[in-house]
């Protein structure tokens, strides 16, 4: 049986399948449930400085085909209360990654220190929520801002720090490079893609917030492209996120250069058992390829790949001049 264990920036994961932030992340019991279902690590809900109820409903709208639209508005109980949930999950033996969001580098630094003090194994910085005023994408779209946040965080903690970057920016590799240069230990990509649904009968936006973020199979190809580009741009590991529902999807992300992946929306469509099923399928799929360790295929689609020219050969030196 192929070995699914991976080393992710110093974290030893039993498999590369991580529960994405915002899914089953409110309670310690749920985090434990995701771990028991077979996740290799579990990321908490994004936690801020104070309790925040999030936007009113509708916050979620399932879309056909293969998309999930949401604007939750970063609901969370705040860093004062949330450590009780983490303690419960830690007692259960869960490998935890703490997600935090702040509005300034200083707030990120403070939250990171307090999150690290709860005993989580690593941090993920939410620099990419696409629908929260003053947070997420709003401070994660500029490489200098990303660097400032990462610098403020790595000064405060001694555990691996992952920067979760947005797909809603022009130059993803620049964001990843900025995070790496500032001291991040890994890059997670992508968060949801800014999106919207309008009810055609009622002629109004469906989500209470209007704009939201799209997840699910509809964005998988966007995530794969992001991982492909970022893996080219940085030397730190990349965690691929977006639309994963099967072992084949995982393999695609690994081939693009991801060391591990996050799974979120599939928990809604397929249930939490998705972790166990994908882990089993992945081991079988690797066996079928004669791969003994999952790490062997990371970035393998990049080998020998070169972008062909799209331009016509120059007259006089190309094929035309050689025709009889």
């Amino acid at each position: 049986m192929a070995d699914l264990a991976v080393d992710l920036a110093g974290l030893s994961l039993r498999n590369p399948l991580i529960l994405a932030s915002g899914i089953w992340g409110e309670s310690g019991d749920s985090l434990s449930g995701a771990w028991d279902a077979g996740a290799g690590a579990v990321i908490t809900k994004s936690i801020g400085s104070v309790a925040r109820p999030g936007y009113p409903n509708p916050t979620v709208e399932p879309l056909d085909p293969g998309g999930m639209l949401n604007a939750m508005g970063l609901p969370n109980p705040g860093i004062d209360e949330y450590p009780a949930e983490i303690a419960r999950a830690r007692e259960h033996g869960v490998l935890l990654i703490g997600s935090v969001f702040g509005g300034t580098p200083e707030e990120f630094g403070e939250l990171a220190g307090r999150m690290a003090a709860t005993g989580v194994a690593a941090l993920e910085l939410n620099l990419s929520c696409p629908h929260a005023e003053g947070y997420g994408t709003e401070i994660g779209s500029d490489p200098e801002d990303v660097a400032a946040v990462v610098r403020a965080v790595v000064r405060q903690v001694r555990i691996p720090v992952f920067a979760k970057i947005t797909p809603n920016a022009a130059d993803l590799p620049a964001l990843a490079r900025a995070a790496e240069k500032a001291g991040a230990h890994g890059i997670s990509a992508i968060n949801t893609v800014r999106a919207m649904a309008i009810d055609p009968e009622l002629e109004r936006p469906v989500l209470a917030h209007g704009l939201g973020g799209l997840s699910g199979p509809a964005i998988k190809a966007i995530g794969v492209a992001a991982v492909w580009q970022i893996a080219e741009a940085v030397r730190i590991p990349v965690v691929g996120v977006g639309g994963i529902r099967s072992a084949t999807d995982v393999i695609e992300y690994l081939l693009a250069g991801a060391t591990a992946v996050e799974i979120g929306t599939a928990v809604a469509t397929d249930g939490i058992g998705i972790f166990g099923r994908i882990a089993a399928d992945l081991a079988r799929a690797l066996d079928d390829r004669g791969v003994r360790r999952v790490g062997e295929i990371v970035g393998r689609a990049r080998r020998g790949f070169a972008v062909p020219s799209a331009e016509a050969p120059t007259p006089g030196r190309g094929a035309i001049s050689r025709s009889p």
Binding site: G22, S27, S30, K45, T59, M68, P75, G271, I272
Partner: peptide
């Protein structure tokens, strides 16, 4: 409390 109603967001844990 319910938000997604799809077993994802954890509001009704």
């Amino acid at each position: 409390q319910m938000k997604c109603a799809l077993g994802m967001c954890d509001a009704c844990a």
